[in-house]
């Protein structure tokens, strides 16, 4: 049995990629099992999908913890330790990145990278990296041949989107690069909530206390950064009132935005009456 874990963000189509491969497997007479990380999906929030492939019916019904391959649809997710956690020695790590990404793994693996964002942006004008990642992953993993992969993509998408997605997969198939990655980190799971090590650490009812970052550093959800032009800013405060997250603050120096939690929705830029905020590239 082969097990794959896909890390993406809500809206990037990780489950779609898994399901397209699963459909290709079915045609090939194999059994496949594709499933999401169950729970509410928030656009931009980290989310996993899983795929299992086997010649026999698949009975195991738990998340993949020791993947043969990890597909990372968004390189910023490599900052999270759980992204590469459990990957098997000699396994495959496929990352959406222009250059070979820097990542510490506890076992030697093969790493592949492809500029799925670039491919997606040029073909769709938006960042939907899943079919490009699918192309790169199928090529280096060898689970599905190019023709079968393209058939599965064509059958998945409505006719008007099919060829562009096939093209995205094809470009990635042609441009993916592979290297060996040596082990450089100790295998250790991220520390859990030490506050709840024992049953008597719990209150009798679920009691949650106000705290920032309940959903983590949500700044990592951004696909664009808000860029403030302090010269232009007239200190009207409309961005402050309109920010859903409450991370825009008006100070004497102008507007500051807490990028640790700003989800990059872009409302502040659109609402600014003097165009003093614009949506720029992440991290630029």
């Amino acid at each position: 049995m082969k097990e794959v874990r896909i890390h993406g963000r809500g809206g990037q189509g990780g489950l779609t990629a898994a399901r397209i491969v699963a459909n290709a497997m079915l045609k090939d007479g194999k059994n496949a099992q594709a499933f999401p990380e169950f729970g509410p999906e928030r656009r931009g929030a980290p989310v996993r999908s899983y795929l299992r492939i086997d010649d026999r019916p698949i009975l195991l019904r738990t998340p993949v913890t020791a993947p043969d391959a990890v597909v990372v649809m968004d390189a910023t997710l490599l900052e999270r330790r759980d992204t590469v956690l459990g990957i098997k020695p000699g396994g495959l790590l496929v990352v959406n990145a222009r250059e070979c990404p820097k990542v510490a793994v506890s076992v030697a693996v093969r790493i592949a990278w492809v500029d799925a964002m670039g491919i997606s942006a040029s073909l769709f004008g938006r960042q939907i990296p899943n079919t490009a990642m699918l192309g790169a992953w199928c090529r280096v993993d060898g689970i599905v041949g190019q023709a079968a992969m393209e058939t599965a993509i064509r059958e998945w998408f409505p006719a008007k989107h099919a060829e562009k997605n096939v093209e995205a997969a094809r470009r990635a198939w042609d441009s993916v690069q592979v290297a060996d990655l040596a082990a450089s980190a100790t295998a250790e799971a991220a520390k859990g909530e030490t506050a709840f090590a024992y049953l008597d650490d719990y209150p009798i009812v679920a009691t949650a206390y106000p705290g920032e970052g309940g959903a983590g550093r949500t700044g990592s959800w951004r696909v664009t950064d808000p860029v403030v032009d302090s010269e232009r800013c007239v200190r009207c405060g409309r961005c402050v009132t309109a920010c859903p997250e409450g991370v825009v603050v008006l100070t004497e120096d102008g507007v500051t935005i807490d990028l640790m939690y700003c989800k990059g929705c872009g409302i502040c830029a659109l609402e600014c009456p003097v165009k003093a905020i614009r949506s720029g590239e992440v991290g630029a």
Partner: peptide, 23 residues
């Protein structure tokens, strides 16, 4: 001095409801 709706919550980017909740 601390916000009444904490940042970094699990609402979607651009969520109208959490903006209303804050206001």
């Amino acid at each position: 001095e601390t916000p009444l709706v904490m940042p970094g919550n699990s609402s979607c980017a651009g969520c109208g409801a959490v903006l209303i909740a804050r206001l």
